[in-house]
Write a protein that binds this DNA or RNA. Sequence first.
DNA 1: TTAATTTAAGACAAATTTATCATAAATGAA
DNA 2: TTCATTTATGATAAATTTGTCTTAAATTAA
Lengths: 144, 144
Amino acid sequence: MFSKACEYGIKSIIYIASQSMLDRRVKIGEVVENTDSPIAFTAKIVGALVKENIVQSVTGPYGGFYIDKHRMEQIKMSDIVTAIDGDSIFNGCGLGLKECDDEQPCPMHFKFVQIRADLKNMLNSTSILELAEGLKAGESILMR
Amino acid sequence: MFSKACEYGIKSIIYIASQSMLDRRVKIGEVVENTDSPIAFTAKIVGALVKENIVQSVTGPYGGFYIDKHRMEQIKMSDIVTAIDGDSIFNGCGLGLKECDDEQPCPMHFKFVQIRADLKNMLNSTSILELAEGLKAGESILMR
DNA sequence: TTAATTTAAGACAAATTTATCATAAATGAA
DNA sequence: TTCATTTATGATAAATTTGTCTTAAATTAA
């Protein structure tokens, strides 16, 4: 469904957000230890998300990654997915056709419309805050 | 969503089915001309689907691929997807966790449950016959 | 039987994704 | 200032997916 890069990115953001709620900046080493992700690859992905203004960073000693509390509510899952994987999962044709729409539909087009709308809606309405709260409360896991 | 191999496989099967309804065997060259797919790669994929008993083939002159009419009704989209991409799209964790279920859920688990159930249901209930009929009637396209 | 045609199968190559490594830049403490 | 620490960046490498090419096997017609 998502690329590995996207999976690592999402897990990292959720972990960083959960710690930011406790006013803790986290280093990339701590992030990957808590998300079962490869350190260098994940550092690059999180770095890209800094550029996208999804997460913030401070270099040097006592530095690390964090997310402003008021941003957590604004940032949706769809923002992370779009930043890393683009929007093909939302808009691309299920059979890979360049052009495929209601006027010139592929044989699966109308079958996919509903599924994609549901997926889009779910990711658009899921904030990082919500996910981080669930994680902090120990209701879910980020590893295994 | 699906791999390129899966996209080519699905398009090939729909085209072959549409021609089988006219009692025409089709050669791989005709399949790729009508589905905008790479010939050698697609030949390999369709060959794998022969082994899975999703499509049938005859070698030699006047040979080609075809699908029994009564099989078209039995074969579902989910059979093709599973044969080529496996079942990770139906059962895998959205964040890539090895173990993720109702008891030990990842932060996105319950959000994905419904989406995946809908996708599974859609692919399980869509037969090749239905897609081939729509294509034959010119209601949809396989290229572009 | 021979030759032509088509799928079957496996080796090989290119492209993309995933991942690592080395170095630069920024920051803070001593 | 100097040094240690951490993110930022770019080069490189490994793994996977995508794609090609060559040859074998099967089938049919002449």
